[in-house]
Design a protein around this nucleic acid. Structure first.
Length: 557
RNA sequence: GGCAACGUAGCUCAGUGGUUAGAGCGGGCGCUUCAUAAGCGCUAGGUCGUAGGUUCAAAUCCUAUCGUUGCCA
């Protein structure tokens, strides 16, 4: 049966380039999941885009004396390059700065406005007399009332981590000109989030298959009770509030960014599929939507976005699963764009291949707790696991076939002991597929690696390099079995290592794309002559890589 | 301060009530040579953050506490 699967992935904030933490957290698992679903025959729509609004971007633009458009397009370009290099298989990666997205976001706003889901409320907000405008929270700095740090921001103190209001700050001042803001009463629109509490609780009842952190955190928030949220801000960069007299306000980013999942699907239908209604195939109750995000984003996808969907149109499907990941750390520290403690994707790709990174990040994916990327681990996994265990198994098999059988798949009768290994290969495909369906990516990858070890063991036991001298049929039968195992590995590793699998597909004498083969074991065809293979992966010099990369990081690139 | 997740071998991580707690890497020993000196086998190493409790039985459940992380105030 064909399912429609929406793979919705967090919208990266376009105020800095992508680093490995972003990839391990959301983009790689989403891509693995999308590739798996396509190869088993499901209809996948995978969308996201650059989040182009919000104050970090305007702050950066101010600091660099440029425009928000220039900032976000710079990083949008970096994102596009990263996706291409890493083989992230988007159907559409757009931005929130499209006419389409503005229009659909305003449609949500107007719909809520008309259905009494919005109301006006006043709050005391910082106003700059000098600039004659209200300032965003982040534009105010001052002394933290909690820890006395002198550079606390209006939304949060970086030193003690406490969340703040600009009014809490002692000696508040504007970051643009140092002037002291005046606090004035200002009216804004609020979204009646509290109204959806019971419906959300009801919806969550059958979600026991969600990851514990995601489910329990969501339930915890619902137990505490939901609060209505301000939906408009005093900004000039963003989506206009579609109400007369509100021309100088913008819709708050938290509200419009999540709408991107829907607006991007609509854009895809219009611009890419050229069938304007096609998006509906993924936005009805028979489809399933998966939201790949990092743990900092959980409430937006398990409470706010579902509430918005309920409020907007009850026929729209709520998230089926939100397999949020925890965080990836780098060499015992947190990834930090501002402190430049990161491995940037495009920079990585200028020195190394995509598949080793995809492998290492998959093997240490932070599915249940924060995990860690170290260069030593990267090189070791590349050399021992990819090159040594998987790559070498493939290479020793294929070169043996070239050297002793002229590269021709032998014609043999399969023996009992071989059947056992072939059965294992089939079992691996089933088990691994189940893991992928339930978003257990590490476990799926482990299943593939286990089969490699079984293959290596089989070769060692059969010793075809000895058999070839006395009993060529025996060696031939071993090789035929090994070719079968390798073709299973090609499929098992495909969602994780698409490039290597495609190469292996070719070395096994197949033409066309590996994903057209389906998630099943293909028996080699006797008599086929296979091309001369090349190693699937490159071995790296452990000490050299560590030295290089450590220097690079300490220099801050 | 509230909510939530996590804390298990040198390292990275599995393991949610039941025999002597597991894997991969790293260490030690041995075998093998088809292969990118890759592969296979054996072995050492842990009072499962701490303290109580429930149970015939707990890494696994409960309570407290410490630590890390995220969200919220």
């Amino acid at each position: 049966m064909t399912d429609h699967i929406l793979v919705a992935v967090a919208w990266p904030y376009a105020n800095g380039p992508l680093h490995l933490g972003h990839i391990a957290g959301a983009y790689l698992p989403a891509d693995i999941f999308a590739r798996y679903n396509r190869i088993i025959g499901n209809k996948v729509l995978m969308v996201s885009g650059s989040d182009s609004h919000g104050t970090p971007i305007t702050i950066r633009a101010d600091a660099e004396n440029t425009t928000p458009e220039k900032i976000f397009s710079r990083y949008h370009k970096d994102f596009q390059e990263s996706w291409k290099g890493l083989n992230i298989s988007w159907d559409l990666f757009t931005t929130t700065d499209t006419e389409n997205h503005h229009e659909i976001s305003q449609r949500f706003f107007t719909n809520f406005f008309n259905n009494d889901l919005l109301y006006e409320a006043t709050a005391s907000l910082p106003y700059s007399i000098k600039e004659k405008r209200y300032l965003p929270d982040r534009y105010i700095v001052g002394t933290c009332p909690n820890c006395d740090s002198e550079n606390a921001r209006g939304d949060q103190c970086e030193d003690c981590g406490r969340t703040l209001d600009p009014q809490d700050l002692i000696n508040p001042r504007s970051i643009t000109d140092g002037s002291v803001p005046e606090f004035r009463e200002r009216t804004h629109f609020m979204f009646r989030l509290s109204k959806f509490e019971n419906d959300l609780k009801e919806w969550l009842k059958d979600k026991e298959f969600w990851r514990p952190n995601v489910l329990n955190q969501t339930n915890g928030l619902l137990e505490q009770g939901l609060k209505d949220r301000a939906i408009t801000r005093d900004l000039s960069w963003g989506i206009k509030v579609p109400v007369d007299g509100w021309e100088d306000r913008r819709i708050y980013v938290w509200f419009e960014a999540v709408i991107g999942y829907l607006s991007a699907s609509i854009e895809w239908a219009k611009e890419i599929a050229k069938e304007p209604d096609k998006w509906k195939d993924w936005w009805n109750k028979d489809s399933k939507s998966y939201y790949f995000i990092g743990k900092d984003n959980i409430p937006f996808h398990t409470i706010i976005w579902p509430a918005m969907l309920m409020g907007y149109d009850e026929d729209l499907p709520l998230p089926h699963n939100v397999p949020s990941n925890e965080f990836l750390n780098l060499e015992s520290g947190q990834f930090s764009t501002s402190r430049n403690w990161a491995v940037w994707v495009t920079d990585y790709l200028s020195r190394y291949d995509a598949d080793p990174l995809r492998y290492v990040l998959s093997a240490t994916m932070p599915e249940t707790s924060d995990s860690e990327f170290t260069w030593r681990d990267f090189v070791r996994r590349n050399n021992n696991e990819l090159v040594g265990t998987y790559g070498n198994l493939v290479h020793r098999t294929l070169t043996f076939l070239q050297n002793n059988f002229d590269g021709v798949v032998p014609d043999v009768e399969i023996q009992e002991s071989s059947n056992k290994l072939i059965e294992e290969s089939n079992k691996a495909l089933i088990t691994s597929g189940e893991y992928l369906s339930s978003c257990d990516f590490r476990a799926s990858l482990r299943t593939a690696m286990d089969l490699c070890q079984k293959g290596n063991k089989f070769l060692d036991e059969r010793e075809p390099w000895k058999a070839i001298k006395e009993d060529k049929n025996h060696a031939a039968e071993t090789m035929f079995t090994m070719l079968t195992v390798i073709s299973a590995l090609k499929i098992l590793f495909y969602p994780f290592l698409p490039e290597s699998s495609q190469n292996l597909h070719g070395y096994l004498g197949e033409t066309g794309l590996v994903e057209s083969n389906g998630w099943e074991l293909n028996t080699p065809v006797s008599g086929n002559k296979l091309p001369k293979p090349k190693p699937l992966f490159k071995k790296l010099d452990e000490e050299k890589v560590i030295l290089d990369e450590t220097q690079r990081m300490n220099k801050g690139n």
